[in-house]
Amino acid sequence: MRFMVIVKADKNTEAGVMPTEQMLADMGNYNEELVKAGVMLAGEGLHPSSKGARVRFSGPSRTVIDGPFAETKELIAGFWILRCQSWDEVIAWVKRCPMPPENDVELEIRQIFEEEDFGAEFTPELREQERRVWAEAARNAKQDLR
């Protein structure tokens, strides 16, 4: 099973406060543990919402709303994609995540849909299209790492 672990934004992340050297080292060690265990598939931090935008869809119209956004508790500061065998395993990994003790931080865990979750509506043709798209995306990601 794959899971997205969402790091909720707070006043510090929204203010663009960067992590300390110690926090970067601790997080680097944690990420290295995740990778060595074969659990981590991806993970990134995000710039504050002041550097972001939203696109609102209403019928045929599209409206772009530039950040920052008011409700910090609804914002994301970063994420991991983890592959674990169970909810218990992903929760155990998330509980080990280093977070600054002086901050209240909330991590949200959401399971990612897999092909079999979509049932018969996800036809063999749609499955093949999905595989082609993700193979191309993986090639793009590989190029980005150079």
Rank of each mutant, 00 (worst) to 15 (best):
R56V: 15
I76S: 05
Q111N: 04
F57Q: 04
A77C: 05
V55H: 14
D66A: 15
V55P: 08
Q111T: 07
K95P: 02
F118P: 02
D104V: 00
W93Q: 03
N103H: 15
I91A: 09
N103E: 15
E89A: 06
V94Y: 13
P100L: 07
V90E: 00
C84G: 06
S50W: 01
A92G: 05
R110E: 11
F122I: 10
K73S: 13
S58F: 03
R96F: 15
I65H: 14
G78L: 03
E89L: 08
L75Q: 06
F79C: 04
F57Y: 07
T123H: 10
E116R: 10
T72Y: 09
T72A: 06
R62E: 00
V64I: 15
W93A: 09
A120E: 01
S49E: 03
I65K: 08
S58A: 13
R62D: 02
S58G: 12
D66Q: 14
A53G: 05
G119P: 06
G67Q: 11
V55D: 15
L82M: 11
W80T: 03
W93F: 06
E115M: 13
I76H: 05
E102K: 05
A77G: 06
R62S: 05
I81E: 02
D88N: 13
H47G: 08
V55N: 14
T72N: 08
R56N: 11
A70K: 07
S49G: 12
G52I: 14
W93V: 00
W87F: 09
D88H: 11
I81N: 10
D117R: 09
G59W: 10
P60D: 13
